[in-house]
Design a protein around this nucleic acid. Structure first.
Lengths: 205, 205
DNA sequence: AATACCTCGTACGTTGATGTACGAGTTCTA
DNA sequence: TAGAACTCGTACATCAACGTACGAGGTATT
């Protein structure tokens, strides 16, 4: 949800209510279809939205623009989820909470990300991810200050690893490569991520 | 390198030497181009091979067939690399050796894998990876038996995580998202992977 | 040296998706 | 309720990549 379709938010002539509704449905459909197939066509998406292809093009000049809107929407949801998680206290436990509550969303948007990477300029994708990335980065850094997360690797890399494990797991699930009860996936993902982040026990050789 | 282009190896009418050479160049070029851009066209590849597009189609009926051959070639190289690594003794150290010596190859073939996933049937990709995957899987299992690798997650998942971290790092490098001296990448990747695999210190809550 | 094999250019047919044009009908909004 | 905004079908223009056809030359092999 969360339309806010204007490229440059703010001064907008005002849109009619039904248009607003159409846009919301299209964006939702785009998230859904692109989330299960990164190559979904505009036609697929329009059909899934229960809307004519022309209506879609009435609101999004190009396919790229649509993908951008879909990703923006998904990221916004993610950011909201992150904001709702209590990140205070022990960073280790905070990270666990964060992973548990964001796994589902990340999983269903993994393919969407792939789609975006293929269509949007590289910089744009980073830009859209900036919000959540900063939040995670801050938590990681705080964990490092607390001594519970390792400091022998750059923070940026650690954040990257978190993403890679999440994204990889999502792809595995989507491709049926992972034979694991869906509920447990969240578990192993969480454990794996925390294992990377945690301060190593013995003085590493 | 390593042509062996016949789909059904063995009884083949025999090919002329120059054809063999062309094929080798084409496969090498395919690995190169697809390794830096998963969407490289047959035209790109032919040009990179210093060969006419028609010559290419003379040897590979479809683009998919070419991608298959390229991936097969890369995997074969990988398998050879793995075979050359001494996997005896402490599994932890063996894994470190394995990661160090295979990182470069994995990195340069990451995009090729992506290309293959888009074009080849899902099962085919797994089939091609079977060789190396089994080798890594065996090492992981051996580490679990030795008590140095964790046993609270399925072996298959652990193998998957190894791949995800490697692949993710490769993508980061390719996209310039990772600002790290190339030499150090191998280091952090190795450390990260080993952190996931290692037996956790305290009894996990 | 004869022959079968290989190279490779040009040109064409095909497919699949993107995006545009037009226009008639419908539904908000004021 | 008048008019602007929106929907949406059909039809078409475009484009990029794939793959095929033909045929004139080279080059390995025997």
């Amino acid at each position: 949800m969360t339309a806010s379709t204007g490229s440059g938010a703010g001064t907008r002539p005002r849109r009619r209510a039904d248009a607003e509704r159409s846009i919301a449905r299209i964006v939702a459909a785009a998230r859904g279809r692109l989330g299960s197939d990164p190559n979904a066509t505009t036609d697929d998406i329009a059909k899934a939205a229960g809307v004519g292809r022309m209506t879609l093009y009435g609101h999004f000049k190009t396919r790229a623009e649509l993908v951008d809107a879909a990703l923006r929407d998904a990221v916004q949801d993610g950011d909201r989820t992150l904001a709702a998680v209590d990140l205070r206290g022990d960073a280790y436990e905070a990270m666990r909470r964060l992973l548990v509550s964001s796994w589902a969303l990340v999983a269903e948007s993994a393919a969407l990300l792939t789609a975006a990477q293929g269509v949007l300029p590289a910089g744009r994708v980073r830009e859209l991810h900036a919000g959540p990335a900063v939040r995670v980065g801050e938590l990681v850094r705080r964990g490092q200050d607390q001594g519970v997360f390792r400091t022998d690797m750059p923070t940026a890399w650690l954040v990257g690893v978190v993403q890679h494990i999440l994204h990889g797991a999502a792809e595995d699930v989507r491709g049926g490569r992972l034979e694991l009860p869906p509920g447990e996936v969240s578990d192993v993902v969480t454990k794996s991520v925390l294992a990377v982040l945690a301060t190593p026990p013995a003085p590493g050789p």
